[in-house]
Simulated scan of single mutants.
Amino acid sequence: MAMTLPVPIEFLPPEGWFPADLEKADATDVAFAVVHPQPDAGFAANITVDGEYRPDTATLTELADKSVERLRNVADSVVVTDCREIGSPDAPALIQRLVFSVGFGDARRELVQSQVYLPMLDVADSREWAVVRLALTATAAQHDTVLGDFQDFVRTVRPGTGTGI
Rank of each mutant, 00 (worst) to 15 (best):
L71C: 02
D50Q: 14
L71V: 04
H36W: 14
V35Y: 06
L60A: 09
V49H: 05
A33P: 08
L63K: 10
Y53A: 06
Q38L: 08
R70A: 10
A41Q: 15
A41I: 03
V49G: 04
S77R: 11
G42W: 03
D26L: 06
A31F: 05
F32W: 13
G42M: 00
L71S: 05
R72I: 03
R54C: 00
P39V: 05
T28L: 02
T61H: 12
R70V: 03
F43L: 04
A58N: 09
V78M: 07
T57Q: 14
E62A: 11
A31T: 05
D50M: 10
P37L: 08
D29I: 04
V34E: 09
D56M: 07
H36E: 13
P55R: 02
K66W: 04
A31Q: 02
A58C: 09
A33N: 06
S77H: 13
H36G: 14
L60Q: 03
T59G: 07
T57G: 13
F43E: 06
R72F: 00
A44R: 02
T61M: 03
R54T: 05
R54Y: 01
T61G: 12
I47W: 09
E69H: 02
K66C: 04
D29G: 09
S77A: 14
V34H: 06
G42T: 06
S67E: 11
L63I: 14
D56W: 05
A64I: 01
F32D: 08
T59V: 04
A44H: 07
T57E: 15
I47V: 15
V49Q: 05
Y53L: 09
V68F: 00
V80H: 07
R72A: 12
L71I: 12
A45E: 15
T61I: 14
D50N: 15
F43N: 06
D40C: 11
I47D: 12
A41G: 13
V49Y: 09
F32L: 07
V78K: 01
T48E: 11
T57S: 13
D76K: 10
N73E: 12
T57Y: 12
S77K: 13
G51F: 03
Y53Q: 07
L63Q: 09
A75T: 03
T28F: 12
D40G: 07
D29P: 01
D40E: 11
E62L: 06
D50V: 09
N73G: 08
V79L: 15
E69L: 12
